[in-house]
């Protein structure tokens, strides 16, 4: 299995067996769907009521979690809340994530400006390896991964298409992420 090989090469027999991956992207990018399609465990979606200093305010934050066991490794996928503000998720990211998966809906170009903002800010602030998944590749009218790479002005190798009709395409994103991480280690 490609995923296992790439993961093992990437981890290079390191003792740690818990791998945390953070999934983020604009609203409607398909974060929950992505985690559902990859996870072996049942996906948890938690709604947390929040209180702020000024008093009670009914804010609901949803966080997706799914996991995947591969041989002796456990991959934990954390999905960021689907809302416009993204700064606070950076703090969660810091807590030991191996890599970041950014998703964007290729069918909905109105997500692109926010994606670019997130991506560029991420580039200047964090040092974690990342990959970009472009969802909805099964549709006829869709931005291809190469076009999104042109839009973001990044290496097309960092952009992978995700097709809901193809079971393997979500896994391919993880495979590519591990390849990128492996390159980082070598480089």
């Amino acid at each position: 299995m490609v995923l296992k090989t790439s993961l093992e090469r990437c981890m290079n027999n390191h003792k740690n067996q818990n791998i945390k991956i953070f999934v983020t992207g604009p609203s409607g990018a398909g974060k929950t769907t992505f985690i559902r399609s990859i996870s072996q465990s049942e996906v948890l979606t938690t709604d947390v009521p929040c209180t702020n200093a000024k008093g009670k305010k009914e804010t609901t934050v949803a966080m997706d979690y799914g996991s995947l066991n591969l041989d002796r490794y456990a991959i934990h996928l954390f999905g960021s809340p689907g809302q416009d503000r993204f700064d606070f998720t950076w703090d969660i990211l810091r807590q030991g994530a191996l890599g970041v998966i950014m998703l964007v809906g290729g069918h909905d170009p109105e997500q692109l400006p926010l994606l670019k903002k997130m991506h560029d800010k991420f580039l200047t602030e964090l040092t974690i390896p990342y990959i970009l998944g472009v969802t909805h590749q099964d549709l006829a009218e869709v931005w291809t991964p190469a076009e999104v790479a042109d839009y973001l002005e990044i290496d097309p190798f960092l952009c992978v298409g995700i097709n809901a009709l193809d079971e393997n395409s979500a896994t391919d994103v993880l495979v590519r992420l591990f390849e990128i991480i492996e390159k980082e280690i070598e480089g």
Binding site: G96, L98, L126, T127, Y130, E153, I180, I185
Partner: peptide, 20 residues
Amino acid sequence: IKTASKKRTFYLPISDQSDL
């Protein structure tokens, strides 16, 4: 001009907060 990307750094995932 271009975005000033930090060097992507890999660090091994760890579960213990103090190590982190």
